[in-house]
Amino acid sequence: MNIFRLAGDMTHLASVLVLLLKIHTIKSCAGISLKTQELYALVFASRYLDIFTHYVSFYNTVMKLIFLGSAFSIVWYIRRHKLVRRSYDKDHDTFRHYFIVLPCLILALLIHEKFTFRVVMWTFSLYLEAVAILPQLVLLQRTRNIDNLTGQYVFLLGAYRALYILNWVYRYFTEPHYVHWITWISGLIQTLLYADFFYYYFQSWKNNVKLELPA
């Protein structure tokens, strides 16, 4: 564990807590894409299959349980909770996310480090996570007034993977043979997808104006 990875995990945890705070306290999911939440639930389900068979550390197990539990409860809230579901903008959350699941699965079957069920599913989760934010970014372009919590949620979610890139750089220089191109390229693409969001988020913060993404 290094400071970049810990900072990344804490940033990821913070993004989940911000979203849960928004949904649980003000019972609203305005501006939040259910499709991105469903994709993330699938990311964690396919990445943490070995949560009980491959013990890494107490920290690792606890964090996996938090990410799994929060992802599925957020999907449940938006789908089932009578108050929350009312604020779900289903007319604008129209990204056909099923069309990105299959290509990620096929790509994982073609490009992976080892052809075992565990590694292929893990690789699938990496490819899927790289594009999981797309429905959310599309929805933000269609959402007029993005509230602060939603903006913070997306920012933290993007920032966590950027910190993971620093972690990979650190591990590359400190651990011999630590080379994982699939992880690195997926993580880089994932972070680059946030580039214009980061730009507009920074502009809104600097000029102290409402966050708006041009359509």
Partner: peptide, 10 residues
């Protein structure tokens, strides 16, 4: 092993 090293991250 390679596997463990990969999967020690979240």
């Amino acid at each position: 092993s390679e596997d463990e090293e990969l999967h020690d991250e979240l």
